[in-house]
Design a binder for these strands. Structure first.
Ligand SMILES: [Mn+2]
Ligand SMILES: [Mn+2]
Ligand SMILES: [Zn+2]
Ligand SMILES: [Zn+2]
Lengths: 151, 151
DNA sequence: TTCCTATTAGAAAACATTTGCAATAAACCC
DNA sequence: GGGTTTATTGCAAATGTTTTCTAATAGGAA
């Protein structure tokens, strides 16, 4: 859970024998500038970049999202829409969690300092190197409670 | 997060104009008997039932898993294997969370009482009806840390 | 028992994600 | 800067998971 710049990303990639490409740099930048509370799917990112004139192929997008998630740069979220969503993975003051309605998928972000502490301690206890730690609450939102019956 | 029996499942289904079928009863039973720490995918469940002589079609399995997850009977887990896993959703003394290695998908379960409290309070504050609450820790396990480089 | 319709099995379709391959271009060395 | 190595890209095809369609079946209420 570090804050990345193009430079530190390049350093970390090169350390492992990998390369910083314009595509990777652009994708990192999109997530860094993404407004708080927004989450992008692979397809979302593809269209976002296309609209910016920065066309990047969908396969590169999938490869990059997976790479950055495994490096701990991005968080991979399951928001109930049938495909993954991503957001930048930031430490303490920005670290947050998600409350999701299982019926309409409306998602609310919330913060809680003790969760990251629990995650850090648990990973450490087992000798794991922590990348991300997210509390996901599945629930039924007020408006879906009123609209009874349908699943 | 209630404990279900065939009877209470029937009651809840019928309340909503739905039906208790032998298939649904069998599937609930499998999850109730599932050893602690085991998680089943749709395919896993399909083969498990086939082996028991209780053949249920894959489409019914998918429909039932989704139904029971939305009812709060089952928890839907993303364990990094490219498909969902399910386990029974039980309250307090059995309620637990998952620490997952992003490289080899090895999963460790752990408990922490304060998380469920945080989840309950957060859902309540927003007027959501709580179904499940799970802390997911993404990390790199000790053996994958040693085996450096490969993604 | 009868009626209504939710649910099932099976096959086909849809969708998300991954993979193979030839062309390209970062990183490293001189 | 120029040359070499090989990681990465784009595109198309393949894979794997989950959903949907349909006719037949069977729960639940009266
Ligand atoms: Mn978020
Ligand atoms: Mn579990
Ligand atoms: Zn809702
Ligand atoms: Zn591992």
């Amino acid at each position: 859970m570090t804050v990345y710049t193009a430079t530190s990303l390049k350093a970390e990639l090169n350390d492992r024998g990998w390369r910083l490409t314009p595509q990777r740099e652009v994708i990192l930048h999109v997530f860094q500038e993404l407004p708080k509370g927004e989450h992008l799917s692979a397809e979302d990112l593809y269209h976002h970049l296309e609209a910016q004139g920065e066309g990047i192929s969908l396969s590169t997008i999938y490869r990059t999202l997976k790479l950055m998630a495994r490096m701990g740069i991005l968080r991979e979220l399951e928001l109930g829409e049938g495909h993954k969503h991503y957001e930048i993975n930031q430490p303490y003051p920005y670290h947050h969690h998600h409350l999701i309605c299982v019926r309409c998928n409306k998602t609310i972000e919330f913060k809680n300092d003790s969760i990251l502490k629990i995650g850090t301690k648990t990973a450490q206890k087992e000798g794991y190197h922590l990348l991300d730690c997210q509390l996901t609450i599945h629930a039924v939102c007020p408006s879906c409670q009123r609209a009874l019956l349908p699943l």
